[in-house]
Design a protein around this nucleic acid. Structure first.
Lengths: 210, 210
DNA sequence: CCAATCCGACAACGGAAGTTGTCACACTTA
DNA sequence: TAAGTGTGACAACTTCCGTTGTCGGATTGG
């Protein structure tokens, strides 16, 4: 059993080395999970791609699930940053903000297809990831719901309505993106983004309470 | 290699025996896939649950993927029947038909939770199933789009709009159901169905073309 | 320079699963 | 009744993977 490193090596501190190895493994995970999928993301393959040996895998992660969850968090975090900053820079208008947020998300995924596969597809194939996905999704749904409240003010749908609608919108966006990235929906990117934004606007006022 | 059976046995023809074994395997598949999931759906477990031996698995299916696809088709077929008949019996009204269709689907899934897990969750975890899911989804989206056209007549959204919207709606429904069946969305069933129907109505007129 | 530590390559153990083969027994049919 | 075929239980072979251990060589601190 390897005791925890303490000394510097190659001019780098023990902690830095550990952190770097962890990063390398996560990057290898993004690559493998995003291109060849979950079943190809084995410990051996990860280490080989990261240029490390198996021992260092267990130094940073308890098992495959832990690594894959870390990968998901990494990618989801990137997406959150991109989407939130795009939203805040957009004009204070419901349609414009929807477009900005969705557009930024789509651009991220088209810029690096691995991310789309991880967030939209692989996240559903694994039990541990599925939990994480659900959590992330709820956070996003809540963000959407809050945004909607901001524009509706007094007459905003009540919280239950808002949660139902925003969950639906997240699912709608995911499904559209899966189909579009897959080539099943042959429309220009801008059209896709516009249509999503219109759906968001149309759905925002929906309520099932009376 | 077992040569194909030709004689009757136990008073049953060879073809009937084959068909029965296949059915048993599919039922075992529904049960395993719908309760313990894909990773537990091994050839040994399937055969054990079906009361058959491994040899008979390969008599009807080339591999696990083939079995699981057959299971999905079986379940999706049942869902299609239920939803279509509910739709046709409902009053000729947009909101009413949406409610009837969604309500029937939800009832099917709550009546047998295995079906929901198969259609909504497990279908995303496997490559072969994912393809099948996409196909089934397109068929459903097309049905929705056609329904919408029926109510809008002249002023109906053009086909691309309709396809985008209906794909989104299928995704929205799936996501809502996943969250609801999972307990993350704590609302009565009727409220869920009503909200979905309202979303359908609200989305039906959305278009991104100008 | 030397002992301690870290590194990389890789073997080894154990388990799980797909797939094929063996064998004894039940049933059919000539 | 006897030969041939279907059936069920189960072993065996193979492959793959998670996980842990070994070992020689590189780097560090004294």
């Amino acid at each position: 059993m390897a005791s925890a490193s303490t000394r510097p090596y190659g001019g780098v501190s023990a902690e830095e080395r550990r952190a770097k190895r962890r990063t390398q493994l996560i990057e290898a995970g993004v690559d493998l999970l995003g291109t060849e999928g979950w079943q190809a993301t084995t410990v051996r393959a990860l280490c080989s791609r990261a240029g490390l040996t198996e021992r260092y895998f267990y130094e940073s992660f308890a098992d495959r699930d832990a690594l894959v969850v870390a990968v998901f968090d990494d990618v989801a975090g990137r997406a959150a940053v991109v989407v939130l900053s795009a939203t805040q820079e957009a004009p204070h208008d419901e349609r414009e903000r929807s477009r900005a947020a969705i557009g930024a998300f789509v651009e991220l995924l088209t810029g690096d297809p691995r991310l789309g596969r991880i967030l939209l597809l692989e996240a559903l194939g694994n039990e541990a990831l599925e939990r994480r996905r659900r959590e992330a999704l709820q956070v996003f749904a809540k963000l959407i719901a809050d945004q909607a409240r901001e524009f509706y003010g007094e007459g905003a749908p009540e919280p239950v309505d808002a949660m139902l609608t925003s969950t639906a919108l997240v699912g709608a966006l995911a499904e559209l993106l899966i189909a579009w990235l897959d080539g099943s929906l042959d429309v220009p990117r801008q059209r896709l983004v516009d249509h999503c934004a219109e759906l968001f606007v149309a759905a925002a006022g929906v309520r099932s309470s009376r």
